[in-house]
């Protein structure tokens, strides 16, 4: 395949990606965050999560005569990422409907340790400055 034939193909590929992304965004709905109901005994459980995703892409084509003559000058790239975090479960019993949250213990433990270290640092710094001020006085 000659480079001249490759150019329209690359453009088509990028156009198709654009269309697919538009389609994905149009269909962003509750189905992505509410799972299928699961029956456990007399209880029905629906898992829930927070979902986020992003995409980025770029392309370029040089049209100067110099580049055209060298049979090059078309390029593009794309990338994306996705994250999903469980938030809890909806518990449905014959008596009531209840949302049971899921807490990320690992993140909270890490944040608690950081808060502890932060507190020790600032309290110690304040005490050292107070003590050194008294010694000077």
């Amino acid at each position: 395949m000659t480079p001249e034939e490759q150019k329209p193909m690359k453009k088509d590929h990028i156009d198709e990606l654009f269309v697919r992304l538009e389609d994905m965004q149009a269909h962003a709905g509750v189905d992505a965050v509410f799972g299928q109901p699961v029956t456990v005994g007399d209880k029905v459980v629906i898992p829930i999560a927070s979902v986020s995703y992003g995409f980025g892409m770029g392309f370029g084509e040089a049209t100067s005569q110099e580049v055209e003559e060298s049979n090059g000058g078309v390029g593009g790239g794309e990338g994306g990422g996705m994250s999903a975090r469980p938030l809890g479960v909806v518990e449905i019993t014959p008596e009531r409907i209840h949302v049971e949250p899921i807490v990320n213990e690992q993140a909270l433990t890490l944040a608690g340790m950081l808060l502890g270290a932060w507190s020790i640092f600032w309290v110690s710094a304040a005490m050292i400055r107070i003590m050194s001020g008294r010694h000077k006085a």
Partner: peptide, 22 residues
Amino acid sequence: GMDGVWGWRASWVKIQPTAVIE
């Protein structure tokens, strides 16, 4: 432009469950 055509596109979507209506 005079030297060529270029473009980019970026998008980000966040879906967060807010409530269940009984």
